[in-house]
Design a protein around this nucleic acid. Structure first.
Length: 120
DNA sequence: GTTATGACCGTAA
DNA sequence: TTTACGGCCATAA
């Protein structure tokens, strides 16, 4: 039995599970902490695929297990809040965890920033 | 198979 | 300083 199918991917180990990887990292985000798409992407080995991380979030719509509200862009801005229900749901969730958010921007972002690579 | 989009990031003007 | 554009990877149509 050889590897018929399509010879694995051009790269070793990355079975279209890119999304699942992002989900796992996001789910690993501790309470009261936040991270950025680039940090997650970098942790996955694709720092240049930060957009894919956000894309994965878009597909996460419906996965409550994934605290996407803890994922923000490099500036600590809630760029994805538009994808949440309502208008301030994401902000409410963050404030609920003790994260101060003003004008869609996280206060002391660098202070509560959680780097996945730092833990992993 | 190609085209277009995307919750980004980084650099240039 | 701010603003604008391109790149880069992956998914969906």
């Amino acid at each position: 039995m050889g590897v018929n199918k399509k010879e694995i991917d051009t790269q070793s180990g990355s079975d279209t599970n890119f999304f699942d990887r992002v989900y796992e990292v996001v789910k690993l985000i501790p309470y009261g902490r936040v991270t950025s798409y680039g940090a997650i992407a970098k942790c996955l080995g694709a720092a240049r695929s930060a957009r894919m991380v956000g894309w994965a979030m878009n597909a996460c719509g419906g996965r409550e297990d994934i605290p996407a509200h803890r994922v923000v862009n490099r500036k600590g801005l809630l760029t994805g809040k538009h994808h949440f229900e309502g208008t301030n749901l994401m902000q409410q969730l963050l404030e609920n965890e003790g994260v101060k958010v003003v004008d869609n921007q996280i206060i002391d972002f660098e202070g509560i920033f959680w780097d996945p690579m730092q833990e992993l």
